[in-house]
């Protein structure tokens, strides 16, 4: 359960490179939260990991990339500016069964090849870091399994389904010791996203439900 400093340092490189997953990662993070000397050790590895990306070659994007990108910014201009919470009273009980299955599949096998009807997408925080994941079913309503395990401050959050410029409240989620999970159901469309919204109304992380 609790790791020794030596075991944590053995895993420091993989943690810094972002390739440590699941329980290993959680155990290391737990140790780091109370061990400044291992924190410093990992921090030095983080610097190396960050700088490695600077070594990738530059390359010219395809013709028209810049105007296309700027246009994409324009079409997103008003997204999220308007808050329109619509409480959803109906929590489809049937879908919860499916979401339990989803969770079991994530635990058993993160490649999810056994379940083609499920899709797992990353939950990305404001600094672009992956803070968790959302698994959803291709059913109506969709079963959703939301889990957060990194870099989100403890507290209570609203879970919102973001659809265009509308946010629909689908549940609440408590992050304790850096971890939180939520299972439920919602009617989703292809371009929707799931976001954690803090008490002040800020979206702290977001997962795009692309299939």
């Amino acid at each position: 359960m609790t790791l020794e400093c030596a075991e944590v340092r053995e895993r420091a490189a993989e943690l810094a490179l972002g390739i440590l997953d699941g329980k290993d990662r959680a155990d290391v993070l737990t140790h780091l939260s109370s061990c400044p000397s291992c924190q410093a050790f990992v921090e030095e590895h983080n610097e190396v990991a960050d700088l490695l990306l600077h070594l990738a070659p530059e390359a010219d994007p395809p013709l028209g990339f810049q105007p296309r990108t700027l246009r994409a910014f324009g079409s997103q201009q008003h997204r999220g500016r308007r808050r329109m919470f619509i409480a959803v009273a109906a929590a489809a009980a049937a879908a919860i069964i499916a979401s339990v299955t989803a969770v079991r599949i994530i635990d058993a096998d993160r490649t999810e090849q056994a379940a083609p009807a499920l899709r797992t997408v990353p939950m990305i925080g404001t600094d672009g870091v992956k803070v968790g994941r959302v698994t959803f079913s291709k059913s109506t309503p969709a079963a959703l399994a939301v889990s957060v395990d990194y870099a989100v401050p403890d507290g209570d959050y609203d879970l919102a389904l973001v659809s265009g410029n509308a946010e629909e409240l689908i549940g609440t989620m408590t992050i304790a010791d850096g971890q939180g999970e939520w299972n439920g159901a919602a009617a989703i469309n292809d371009d929707d996203a799931v976001a954690l919204v803090s008490a002040s109304g800020a979206r702290v992380c977001e997962a795009e439900l692309r299939s």
């Binding site: 972002g18 960050d50 990306l53 600094d127 672009g128």
Partner: peptide, 23 residues
């Protein structure tokens, strides 16, 4: 939300890019 104390803009942007590409 970018925090300059945690690294340069380039580092921040490349980390975002890598995470997206890996996903």
């Amino acid at each position: 939300a970018y925090d300059p104390r945690r690294g340069s803009v380039t580092t921040w942007l490349l980390a975002i890019t890598r995470n997206l590409a890996i996903d």
